[in-house]
Design a binder for these strands. Sequence first.
DNA 1: TTGAAAGCGTTACCAC
DNA 2: GTGGTAACGCTTTCAA
Lengths: 361, 361
Amino acid sequence: MTRKATALDVARRAGVSRSAVSLVLNGRGDGNVAKDAQERILAAAAELSYTPNAIARSLRDQRSRVIGLVSDQAVTSPFDGEVIAGADALARSRGFVTLATDTEQDAVRDLDAVRTLLDRQVDGLIYVTVGLHALHVPDGMLSVPSALANCYASADSPAGAEGLPSVQPDEVAGGRDAAAHLIALGHRRIAFLGGEYTSPAVALREAGFRAAMAEAGLPVREDWVLEAGWDIAPGHRAATALLSASASERPTALLAGNDRAAVGMVLAAASLGLEVPRDVSIMGYDDERRVAEVMVPPLSTVALPLRKIGEEAMRAVLGALAAEASSARTTPAASAGAPAAEPLLVPCRLVERASTAPAPA
Amino acid sequence: MTRKATALDVARRAGVSRSAVSLVLNGRGDGNVAKDAQERILAAAAELSYTPNAIARSLRDQRSRVIGLVSDQAVTSPFDGEVIAGADALARSRGFVTLATDTEQDAVRDLDAVRTLLDRQVDGLIYVTVGLHALHVPDGMLSVPSALANCYASADSPAGAEGLPSVQPDEVAGGRDAAAHLIALGHRRIAFLGGEYTSPAVALREAGFRAAMAEAGLPVREDWVLEAGWDIAPGHRAATALLSASASERPTALLAGNDRAAVGMVLAAASLGLEVPRDVSIMGYDDERRVAEVMVPPLSTVALPLRKIGEEAMRAVLGALAAEASSARTTPAASAGAPAAEPLLVPCRLVERASTAPAPA
DNA sequence: TTGAAAGCGTTACCAC
DNA sequence: GTGGTAACGCTTTCAA
């Protein structure tokens, strides 16, 4: 429980001044500090296992090297933990640390969270959401370099919010790829059982699905374009309804809104005596860890690039920070309202596993 | 992008000194600052939307009001995100903030993570693991008040580590309750399909299972006590083997290692033409969000008190911090090696849903 | 009742 | 090539 060593302790032990310690430990010893003094400093620092006090450094530098992460439920959700992990990894590699707070769906806590983070002098902010989402950007986010991961500024956001970089999965391409995969396997009767249309992702994927069908010259059966939820139970329900029809009347392939719903669909098929993928192919979405891969059969799915999304959002913030730092040396002005940025679309990856197979003859 | 207001700005605007601002804003204005001055200060602070710089305050107070959270994979895992959420909620309610870092299973990063956190002057530390676990406690954890959530110090930990408070689920009681639930439903042929014995939780639950069976005077079929993994696929495999036997030869109830494995078991049952729970009852474990409750049928299970575990670990740390602060006023010594603490066992809760029912006649 | 000053641990600048 | 000093923003103590 001995107090941590300070630079002064090191200086005393090495018989030099604090400034010498600072210079040497920051790699600018050569040319400023005598060789033997440098050695004594290094030795003393090691003996005392000295590391600089990051708090003091932050105060001095006016930058904390902390990026704040606000999420609506990412920390408690299996999904966007991945986004955070991606952001954190990049931050760490550049000497930053992330401070994450979860509002647990409570919109009021947004402002509180941002406020708290700003009080801690975070250098930047990233808002992470579970699932693609329009977001009412909290005011404070505009006062430091910020980015939106998996979400985008809603129209009622404060002025300037439209300039925030937004990183999103390319859902249209994802839907298209999923459908194209099934079409390539010879399926013609494909049902689109999306999640809930409250998520903008669903309409985008549906657009991709329709595009793929059109490209292949296949008709879309409108009564097979349905909401089938995000969970096992609603997926089960929807699939049961569709698959109860006779072999010639039912779809040969199901496109689920996510892997969990797909699990429900496989379950429904099994209860109806149908075997996946022999009798019906089922595709998931998300490539959720510990679900898609370990399902029986393992699910073909579209992998959401969550880590990459987090990483790109962090890259945007860190980039803005670097730009700010260098422009400060030249023109100390005008980093304001960027020109309504295009969202950065990160491609999803098609993952072929055993839940899809050629259409039954 | 205007710089944040400081206490000096407020003081100038209110026409007083910085100290007056500090006193008033910290609630000690009465008796020290004139009434009208107080009002002017409050008004000025509001107009400038002043909030104190937490970094500066930390440096001054020599306490950061940050608790560091280290986890082996909690952030990216659906489970222990809950532990973190619980810890975070309590911390926040007491004016603390949590700084979480995920080592993503890389043991080497442990020390690095702790070091980084300590450099940032965290006031306390909590190590969170996914699943009950023996942990080689990183050295640094002993230099500030710390606690272990879901884990306990391994024998090769540094001296003093055995004194760290450890908060764990009461797995023995959990296993007993699960078995007792099935026994109460009239089941006598119960299979214990635990996860992997590399997790100490499994042996504990098995002990609980055996205790319940013994209390009921029921024999345990040793060939029905098996490892059936933590995922859908191995659960499916184990259940398929067991349930392929004839009705009189197979178990009437399955106790799974977790909800995911239970999903695999339900799936296996369906493929074999068995209906759950009519033909066989299946119990999960964990009460995992978005799995147990939405399964078809919804899973009876044992809820792991993850939030509570996080909360209790945080309570221990915050308590130690408070004690340290007050003892500093009296005796500035001896907070060292506590007397090998008993682990705090948090009870699990039995959740009865539709996957269990009276045993078939 | 008020204001001035010290100090938390750093780093950068500027005399020596 | 070196070491003293100021400043970051805050709180607290002490003197007026």
